[in-house]
């Protein structure tokens, strides 16, 4: 059985000119992610994790190579098309500053719907399920500054899933949380995307976080240097350690 990958990268490169020298932040990466696949991206600081994620999400243009989402070439789209794709087919969770400070939790949750012209009516039942599962039911009228860090990240997750996107991108989603809260948030993310069949690309520094993934990619100097399937946190931590020692 062959399924077409949801997200595919071919020969992806991204270089920056900094003074006389060229930095290859992403230096030739090929990837194919199936529907429902959850991958973690790890690597030392500066190894190109965020750059890769931004390229995959169409937030940055590669110097070379293509990115296909459900077969559509992101690198050939203009700004407007990319905006629409992000709104309808992608979800985002960042490390911080995920929520618009002047909007309530409910309004933040509905942002991707409100950006449609005309605005899409929220699906009440789905919204209720989502907020229930993420424990946000009692917080909907609050403003972001009235939430804890973990609650804020849960709102961001709910928002990322509100339109059941093809892919969810998460850049260190638990980077600002304490260990226990981070784990709770990640379990929720893992459970939800599995039940929805969303593909997830998560950048992380945390081996425990990565152990929630089906596959962990290890980056160094913009290249995938190792990959582990269904690994536990110890195996991931060991691989990371070897990677850091080797460099």
């Amino acid at each position: 059985m062959t399924t077409t990958p949801v997200l595919q990268a071919r020969g992806l490169r991204r270089s920056y000119q900094s003074g006389p020298q060229t930095v290859h932040a992403v230096d030739g990466i090929d990837l194919a992610l199936d529907a429902g696949e959850f991958i973690a991206v790890m690597g030392p600081s500066g190894s190109g994790k965020s750059t890769l994620m931004h390229l995959l999400a169409g937030l940055d243009q590669p110097s070379e190579g293509t990115v296909l989402l459900d077969g559509d070439d992101l690198t050939a789209m203009d700004d407007e098309e990319l905006t629409t794709v992000r709104r309808r087919r992608m979800g985002f969770v960042f490390q911080s500053f995920n929520l618009v400070p002047d909007l309530t939790v409910r309004e933040n949750l509905r942002l991707p719907l409100s950006f449609e012209r005309p605005p899409v009516r929220p699906d009440g039942a789905w919204e209720a399920t989502l907020t229930d599962r993420l424990g946000l039911a009692g917080l909907l009228e609050r403003l972001p500054h009235e939430l804890s860090g973990g609650q804020q990240q849960r709102v961001a997750i709910a928002r990322a899933l509100v339109r059941t996107p093809s892919v969810v991108f998460a850049d260190e989603p638990t980077g600002n949380l304490d260990v226990a809260t981070g784990r709770a948030v990640l379990s929720l993310l893992g459970e939800l995307v599995r039940s929805l069949g969303c593909t997830v690309v998560m950048v992380t520094h945390d081996a425990t976080a990565a152990s929630h993934a089906d596959r962990t990619l290890f980056l160094r100097d913009g290249r995938v240097v190792d990959a582990l399937d269904d690994a536990d946190d110890e195996a991931i931590a060991r691989t990371m350690l070897d990677l850091v020692r080797a460099s």
């Binding site: 937030l59 700004d79 407007e80 905006t83 629409t84 992000r86 709104r87 309808r88 992608m90 985002f92 500053f97 995920n98 618009v100 942002l111 991707p112 950006f115 012209r117 928002r159």
Partner: peptide, 9 residues
């Protein structure tokens, strides 16, 4: 942030 989430220019 809004643009990342899909708000048009």
């Amino acid at each position: 942030l809004m643009r990342v989430l899909g708000q048009s220019r």
